[in-house]
């Protein structure tokens, strides 16, 4: 899959109202693979910290017996961070406003994940 295709998939995700940006991250490296972010979002910082958070929560989920993690939703004061681990070591990261429709966003993220297979 080339970068143009990855960017097209991210563009599709960012069409949901309230989404400020989306990026594909290499989960092991914490490096951005492709991104469609609004100005002011530090992509490389987000990539590194989101990958680290996903790895740590994954270990917590396993340790608690909850099994493999499927989706992470961080609700914060001014917005939300949504993380979807994909196959091939990729992580789909979405930044959204606080009022975003999380269900619809999650659906679009899963569609994006399917499109990347």
């Amino acid at each position: 899959m080339n970068l143009e295709r990855l960017n097209a998939v991210l563009d599709q995700v960012t069409r949901v109202r309230g989404i400020r940006g989306a990026m594909l991250v290499s989960a092991d490296d914490g490096l951005s693979v492709a991104e469609a972010l609004m100005e002011g979002i530090r992509g490389h910082a987000l990539a590194a910290l989101a990958a680290s958070l996903t790895a740590r929560l994954g270990r917590a989920a396993e340790a608690s017996g909850a099994g493999e993690q499927r989706f992470i939703h961080v609700a914060a004061e001014h917005g939300a961070l949504l993380l979807l681990p994909l196959r091939d070591g990729l992580l789909l990261v979405v930044i959204a406003d606080r009022e975003v429709n999380v269900g619809l966003t999650r659906l679009e993220m899963q569609r994006a994940g399917d499109a990347l297979r």
Partner: peptide
Amino acid sequence: DTSIGLVQL
């Protein structure tokens, strides 16, 4: 237990 992304950051 860490990543190049975090080290660079």
